[in-house]
Amino acid sequence: MINNPPLKIGIASGKGGTGKTLLSTNLAAYLSLTQPTLLVDLDVEEPDDFLFVRGTTQSITDQYKMIPVWDEKACTLCGICSKTCKYHAVIQLGSIILVFKELCHSCYACSELCPAGALPMQKHKMGEIKTITSGNLTFIESRLNIGEEQAVPLIHQTHERVEKTHGDIPLQIFDCPPGTSCPVVASTRNVDFVVLVTEPTPFGLNDLRLAVETMKEIHKPVGVVINRYGIGNSDVEMYCREAGIPVLAKIRYDRRIAELYSNGQLVYDKIEDMQTSLDNIIKAIQNVVRKN
């Protein structure tokens, strides 16, 4: 086991509400019945995997980004800082310099270009990483503070933490933020395989197409899970066939799933077909990754 790198699976979708959390939490809990498994919630702006995982909290660590802090005494009010900052995170109002932490991208330009050294960089808490264990399952939640605009640095830090302290867990599942922009790219960059969760409707297909294009851009192998199978039509399946994307599983629409989910309950041990679906997903991924 020691020499084998872990299998890293990203769970993503073109938009929210397709069943990403449902799949991530159930897949992780089910796999952890037979082997050590890691679940990482990278949807840092709206993390809600925690609603489905009950365990013991092992640690909570503050996560920081670097921001400039104004040193009034050293400042000569030359105005270079506010002209340098492209994000308007540093502004000058007469004899006062204001720094807006949430708008800051930590580029260091204002700090290092200040001729008076009046904007030293300091740590600013932007969120926290919580580690919870439950049997064979290790769960890591990464949460951005409300008002913070930059999700990407926290996602990078979370990946680093996982590599450093949990590299020995053979199976790793990353619940990624929805959408197709920078946070998703940051979340999926170092995974081996990306599962795209969609639903069999025109909205689902449209969002899936965008997600597939994004993953192509960063050269990730992908597979599709169709959630709420049966509520729509077969266009998603047709698209996957034509685009040569494997459909890993179809999770049939079942009102009981919606009800259990709304109460924060896992479904793999209560809905008959669910375990078969989860088995199929993991087997298919292992096959693809092995081939590569």
Partner: peptide, 29 residues
């Protein structure tokens, strides 16, 4: 793209009005 609120605050500082009349009111920053 972002930071319109603080950019405009800098502008209004140059005008230095005694009263500002607006609609929704300024955002947090």
């Amino acid at each position: 793209a972002h930071g319109a609120g603080t950019a405009t605050a800098q502008k209004i500082f140059e005008i230095k009005p005694d009263v500002l009349i607006t609609g929704n009111g300024p955002g947090e920053n």
